[in-house]
Simulated scan of single mutants.
Amino acid sequence: MEFNFHALRMGFEHFDHTGVGVVSKMDFHNVMNEYDFKMTRHECNRLIERCSVTTSDGNVNYKEFLLKFMSRSERDLAHRVISDPCHKFNTRAFTPPGALSIQDVEAKLVEYFHKEFLQLLGSL
């Protein structure tokens, strides 16, 4: 169930020349688009701010970002998205084409990381 997590992490690691888990906002945006989380730069910056993963020098801690969506603990983002009945994750029928909103990206990330788990849970 961690294949997608590792795949996206490897995409970020390609731009992490220091190996500390940090990339520029531009590289973060490019990786997200490459993995089909298409959004405008403005929406990407809003997502980064919403997830509180900006470092003191203005870069993005992608490892923290990934962990916030991979973990299903009550204090992480995946749990917040899944448990919010008004979030697009719970209300939309499909992912719209083109540039995505922050809620669409959050919903798509939760599906990307947890789809098999949620399907298993639903079948029980």
Rank of each mutant, 00 (worst) to 15 (best):
K108P: 05
V20Q: 11
K115L: 15
R50G: 01
F69N: 05
F65E: 04
M32W: 06
N90A: 07
H87Q: 11
T54A: 11
F94K: 10
Y62E: 03
E34R: 13
R92G: 00
N30W: 00
T95E: 10
F117C: 02
F37A: 08
V110M: 07
V22D: 00
E106N: 10
H114I: 10
Q103H: 13
K68H: 09
F113N: 05
T18I: 09
R80Y: 08
L77N: 05
D76S: 11
L77Q: 11
V60T: 10
T40N: 04
D84Q: 06
M26S: 08
R75T: 15
E116Q: 13
S101F: 04
S101Q: 05
H42S: 13
S52C: 12
D57E: 14
T91V: 14
E43C: 06
G19P: 04
P85I: 13
C44I: 04
C51W: 00
R80I: 11
F117D: 14
C51D: 04
G21Q: 05
D27P: 00
V110P: 04
I48Y: 01
D104M: 02
G58K: 04
V110G: 07
S24K: 01
L47R: 03
N45K: 07
F69Q: 04
N61K: 02
M32K: 05
N90D: 09
G98Q: 05
V22N: 01
E111C: 12
K68I: 01
F94G: 00
F89P: 05
F117N: 07
A93E: 12
K38D: 06
A93D: 11
E106T: 13
K25C: 08
N33M: 08
A99D: 15
T18D: 13
D76V: 04
A99S: 15
K108N: 12
K25P: 00
M32G: 03
C51T: 15
A78E: 08
V31L: 02
F113W: 09
S83Y: 08
V110Q: 06
T55Y: 06
C86N: 15
V53R: 01
D36I: 05
F37N: 07
T55K: 01
Y112V: 07
I82R: 12
D76K: 12
D36G: 00
M39P: 04
M32I: 08
S52Q: 12
K63A: 00
V22Y: 01
D84A: 10
E64D: 11
T18Y: 07
S24P: 01
V22C: 01
S52R: 09
K68L: 13
D36V: 09
T54G: 03
A78F: 06
K63P: 00
F89C: 08
T95S: 12
V22R: 03
E74R: 12
H87W: 10
V53N: 02
K25E: 14
P85E: 13
E49Y: 00
R50T: 12
E74S: 14
F69T: 07
E34Q: 13
V110N: 07
Y35K: 05
G21Y: 08
H114R: 08
S73V: 14
S56C: 02
L47G: 06
E74I: 10
T40Y: 02
M70R: 14
R92V: 14
T91D: 09
Y35M: 07
R72Y: 09
S73R: 13
